[in-house]
Write a protein that binds this DNA or RNA. Structure first.
Lengths: 201, 201
DNA sequence: TATGAGAGAGACAGGTCTGTCTCTTGTCAA
DNA sequence: TTGACAAGAGACAGACCTGTCTCTCTCATA
């Protein structure tokens, strides 16, 4: 145990280790004993910081949620005032993420699959994230003047979900890389092509 | 135990019960004891028919795979000779499935999320299904004369994956219902609109 | 130096899981 | 009627899981 590690607060050490293990192996496949062993922490320290394993899972996803919106806001902000550029920036961000070697799927969707029912605290975090994505996509779509902003938001969210899943099963370089282009096609179909020529169906 | 139930072979009874429970609650959440209790079968009978729980999971998915291709082939066949109609028929089939009240996600994607690594026998079944989908989509896309059949296959598979996942998290009536329309936009962008006016990006 | 909080170490309880084994029961054909 | 065999019933082993508890150690601060 290096001094540098010891400087990190216990809660933080647990959360970092749990995040890595949960994301790589899945929540159910990683036990408390593994987490405390890998983070060099006593079991009681874990249960002093987190009421239960479920709460630790929820804390991990809450952290992912914060990071998610940080990336989202940065992408939209970098795109400037144009809402269409904002939508495209989000598509590009998704494409870049699923193409990264470290990509092993969306933690929200993965965890949702592991707890498809019940009152697991992680489910609230996941639901909030997914609703938030749709709301913001719809707001951007509305601002672009799309004919049916709600429909465009539906289409883009489905496409993004697909990229997340597909990138997980097929790895980097797979079909998911097409998400940015496909999204642009869907956008163009609702608000005209970049050169101003509409192409509605 | 009714006579009708007893007439069903033990292996079949186990498989039906496991299929229902695995699909609804997830593989890891359902134990062997639950399966034998719910199917009215002795534990030894289960292990006489299946070498392990993992093999039972794989058998369930293999059965789903057969049913999947039966639906696929029926949809394509009903669409006639036109490959574009075949692609649209598949999109319609997906849309109908994710809109059904019984829909609780794609068993392949759900199970993949539960076993994201290792040599689980179910993973082979899932991989084979996913590769098969892409191959057949690409073949249909090629037959339509799409400019980039591989890209169109990528886009459609990502879209379908997204519909499966989104339908699972949002339930019937959610964004996933847009899959058929969105897929048509992507097809039209590559092979021209139904009225013959191309709309490539 | 004394003290108290934070944290490590590890035993433990109670439950669940998979998989094995033995014994019993029911059924069907010769 | 008898014998073979499939299947039910359930005990059991061994592993693993979460969560609790006690004891000990370290270190900062009064």
């Amino acid at each position: 145990m290096t001094e540098a590690v010891l400087r990190v607060p216990v809660r933080e050490r647990i959360l970092r280790t749990a995040a890595r293990l949960f994301y790589r192996h899945g929540v159910r496949a990683v036990g408390i004993d593994t987490i405390i062993a890998r983070s060099g922490v006593a079991k009681m320290s874990l249960y002093r910081s987190f009421a239960s394993k479920d709460e630790l899972v929820a804390a991990w996803l809450a952290e992912r949620n914060v990071a998610f919106w940080r990336r989202w806001d940065a992408a939209v902000a970098a795109a400037g005032e144009d809402p269409r550029a904002g939508l495209e920036a989000i598509l590009d961000m998704v494409a870049a993420r699923v193409a990264a070697p470290a990509w092993q799927g969306c933690p929200f969707l993965k965890t949702w699959a592991e707890f498809p029912e019940g009152v697991h605290p992680a489910r609230q975090v996941i639901e909030a994230n997914r609703v938030g994505v749709h709301v913001r996509l719809a707001a951007l779509a509305q601002a672009t003047g799309a004919r049916d902003p709600a429909l465009l938001a539906d289409q883009l969210q489905v496409l993004i979900d697909g990229a997340y899943i597909n990138g997980q099963t097929h790895g980097p370089g797979g079909p998911a890389c097409c998400v940015a282009g496909a999204g642009r096609v869907l956008i163009a179909a609702q608000i005209g092509r970049p050169d101003g020529v509409g192409a509605p169906i």
